[in-house]
């Protein structure tokens, strides 16, 4: 693992039970993600993209193999330590935005910062405002998610992922629920933030059109990384 390696996945396997049958989702996957990369994880539906993102995001445990985040073997961490790691190092963007409907955009972006006690109230406010400015939603800060368009909601979700100043942002099919115009805008925004803030992005997609816009592509098929 080099000093710029943010994520190291080593021989990770994962299967799911489907009734009496065990269905393999990942088979001995090994991959490194380096700082500042803008990486697309491409594969068909059911290929194992989301499962790999879940392993890297520490929201699921592999059956075998190990995952390191900035040199920390996440398999050695207890649940609280994994939560803290997610809060401080990883930002998540979801396909269906997953904003809390009763909170304003500002409050949604502020949410992960509320549990980080190292951040003061003033800094929290400043980070939220900065994140909203970065995604162009500063004027909609007081709106609730149901008052936003799909693209605006995903931008709010990106602001929430970035507000904690993570070293890695994981995005699971971030454009799947958007039309092509909004999809392009979201990818542009992520690219822009990747360059401006040097945040590492790893996102899954099955949209082959995006291949030309990223600086690294990982193909996954039937739970195996393919060249």
């Amino acid at each position: 693992m080099t000093s710029s390696t943010i994520v190291k996945v080593d021989q990770v396997s994962k299967s799911y039970r489907l009734g009496q049958v065990s269905v393999p989702a990942l088979k001995n996957v090994a991959v490194d993600i380096h700082g500042g990369e803008f990486t697309a994880l491409i594969g068909a539906s059911g290929s194992g993209k989301s499962t790999l993102l879940n392993m890297i995001g520490c929201i699921d445990n592999p059956d075998t193999g190990k995952v390191w985040i900035q040199g920390v073997d996440v398999g050695t961490l207890n649940d609280n330590a994994k939560s803290d790691l997610r809060n401080q190092k990883i930002g998540f963007i979801f396909q269906s935005f997953n904003l809390v409907p009763v909170l304003s955009v500002f409050e949604n972006v502020e949410l992960p910062l509320l549990i980080n006690h190292q951040i003061s109230k003033a800094e929290r406010r400043q980070r939220v405002e900065e994140a909203l400015k970065d995604v162009g939603l500063e004027t909609l800060a007081n709106n609730r998610p149901d008052q936003l368009s799909g693209g605006q909601r995903q931008r709010a979700a990106i602001a929430r992922a970035l507000a904690g100043h993570p070293v890695l942002v994981l995005a699971d099919e971030p454009t799947a629920n958007l039309d092509s115009d909004n999809s392009n805008r979201i990818i542009d925004l992520m690219l822009q933030l990747n360059k401006k803030k040097n945040v590492t992005f790893l996102f899954s997609t099955h949209d082959e059109k995006l291949m030309g816009r990223v600086n690294r592509i990982i193909h996954i098929k039937d739970g195996v990384i393919t060249p």
Partner: peptide, 12 residues
């Protein structure tokens, strides 16, 4: 929503 809170770093 609970999964989202957990992914954002909320402890159980």
């Amino acid at each position: 929503e609970i999964g989202t809170y957990r992914a954002l770093g909320f402890r159980r």
